[in-house]
Amino acid sequence: MQEHLPAVELDGIDRSYGSVHAVDGVSFKLEQGEIAALLGPNGAGKTTTLDIILGLGRPDHGRVAVLGMSPQNAIERGLVAAVLQTGGLLKDLTIRETVELTATLFAKSQPVDEVLKRAGIDGIAGRMVRKASGGEQQRLRFALALLPDPVLMVLDEPTAGMDVEGRRDFWNAIRSDAARGRTVLFATHYLEEADAYADRVILLRQGKIVADGTPVEVRSLSAGRSVRATLPNADEAKLSGLPGVRSIEVRGDRVLIQTTDSDAVARYLLTATAARDVEIVAQNLEEAFLTLTGEDGAKANPVGGAA
């Protein structure tokens, strides 16, 4: 059944440039309909991974399949499309002409007007590309990627260099498109983008996957969450015996518990003690990101795929 083919399947992908191991044994499976973020600092191997999925680059070892076929075959059939950092545009065409020209290259393509509209650039279709802002050019690249009506949309740091407004407009266009069921895989080093737009985060560090899960799971991976409560005469020994608890701090009547399983702690506090004013504070993704991608972060255990 074709519907059940994974959108992307990477199995033990390695890629070196000289002595630099850009991608080191990356494996993951992306199901159709998922919106996943490839998150990591510069040089983590995000672009190399995406290039391999798009057939622009080749892995030294490992297997890559896009909807069950090779990346080249998927590109030829318009099943996968991408918005790349490096994809250039011709300055001497208008926005509409660029879309018209690209549309002729596909065996079947969406109507030009519809694509312009969905990318939110129908109002500036007559503008020369050289006069379009960075954000408008990026939405044009998105329009080009929409032409073949791809099953999988790949975005490589799509909002790099955009102002806040451009970034918001761009993500609005992506989000309303993804709502129609398209699979999206995007690379970013903006944590808030991964948190806000992805339902799965794959965290890369030095070419390896260090975490893979929902934004919430990834966030709780490093230091987890802190649970605070008012609890006179807290039994520290009992609390530290709960699963996932890392540290306990008692300040008068207040206890502060760092844990990777805040649910267990909260349940215990509320059912077995007189605790009140229980607060659970999530560590934000930024902190998780820094912990997991920092020099000593590699030992964090990945959680299972979100699929």
Partner: peptide
């Protein structure tokens, strides 16, 4: 010119 602008790379995302 097209290589300098990166258009050739953009075209590699099409069946051309």
């Amino acid at each position: 010119v097209e290589r300098a602008l990166g258009w050739s790379r953009q075209l590699r995302l099409t069946p051309l």
